[in-house]
Structures are given as structure tokens and as C-alpha cells.
Amino acid sequence: MIRAAFASTRLRLARFRDDERGVALIEFAFAVPILTLLFVGGYQLSDALFAYRKVTLATRTISDLTSRFTKVSDVDLDIILNASQQVMSPYSPSAAAMTVSQIDIDAGGKSTVSWSRGKNTSKLATNSVFDLPAAMKQPNTSLIVSQIVYTYRPGIASNVFGAFAIKEQMIMSPRASQTIVLDNT
């Protein structure tokens, strides 16, 4: 009797071992979480890269538009900064801290802020020292510097990854004159 029970159990185990009807379901159950993670991760990575590209384009837009002037006012600078926010679409413009500044380099190579304007952040202090790369410090010149710090929040799993800053800076020479005068009269 016991021998028959063992034989019966051994036969059932052999049939269970050789049964392949549920193999695909088990493989699918193992693969779905990994494939889902790859899909979501790929989506988030491409979205972050697209946001970085938008920040770069907006930074270039600020410098490009500002460098075309010979004289600007705070109203002109606000228009430029607002227009550059439109480049950030579909990303939130309120998450982008933007500044545009003119940096003057004196005969000794010291670079200071001539004027500055900010959007969603404070402007740089006038006459404060601004650190430029050594190759950009040409005596008796002026440069337009635009900066954006964008706080990127992932759309999926933002609690896991959290927000991070995308920073970009663009430096250009004024195009139509040696320096751009800030005129608020």
C-alpha cells in the first residue's frame, strides 16, 4: 500500500515536471516587470533629454535676442525673457529661473556685471564680479550672458527620483555695438 502510494506520487510528479502548459505564463510573469521598468525608464530619460534641449534653446534665445540691441530697457528685457519662456513649452515656464546680464571686462581683465534682469529669480547685483572663462576675458569688451536653471520633475516615479536642476549658460558678444546700454528713461 505504501509502495503504491509512492509510485502514484512519483507518477504525478513526473507528469507535473513534463507538463509545459504554464511555461509561457510563468515566463511572461517574470518578464513584464522588467519590460515595464525599461519602458518607463526609457520614457523618463527621453523626456529629461528633451527638457534639457528646451532649456538650451531658451538660453540661446535669450542671448541671441538681447545681443541684437544697441540699447535696451527693463521692458525690452522682460519681453525677451517672456518670449524665451515660450520656447520652454510644453514644460512649465514657472520652473525656469532665467537671467540675462551684460558683463563688462576692463583693461585689467576684471569682469563685472554692468546690468542684469531676472525672471522667476533675482537679477545679478550690478558691479559684482562675474567669473568668466579665461578665453572670454578680452580687455575692454562686453558680453551678454544668459543663464537658466530649470527644475525638472519626472512625470512618472517623481517620488523615487525627485526633482533635479538642469542648468545652462550662454555667452555672446553684442552684435550691433560694442556694448548694450540699459536705458530706463
Rank of each mutant, 00 (worst) to 15 (best):
T99V: 11
T99F: 00
T99R: 13
I103S: 05
D106L: 00
D106E: 01
D106R: 00
D106A: 00
A107L: 06
G108P: 01
T112K: 10
V113F: 03
W115K: 07
S116F: 06
G118H: 09
N120I: 01
S122D: 14
S122C: 07
K123I: 11
L124S: 11
A125I: 11
T126C: 02
S128L: 04
F130K: 12
F130W: 10
D131Y: 06
D131K: 13
L132I: 10
P133C: 13
A134Q: 10
A135N: 12
M136Q: 15
Q138L: 10
N140D: 14
N140H: 02
T141E: 03
T141K: 00
S142Y: 02
S146I: 05
S146Y: 07
S146T: 06
V149N: 14
V149T: 13
Y150H: 01
Y150V: 04
Y152L: 08
R153Q: 13
P154I: 09
G155E: 11
G155A: 12
I156P: 01
I156E: 02
I156C: 01
S158G: 14
S158V: 05
N159P: 00
N159C: 00
N159T: 08
N159I: 03
V160I: 15
F161Q: 07
F161S: 10
F161R: 06
G162F: 11
F164M: 11
I166Y: 06
K167I: 02
E168D: 15
M172P: 03
M172I: 05
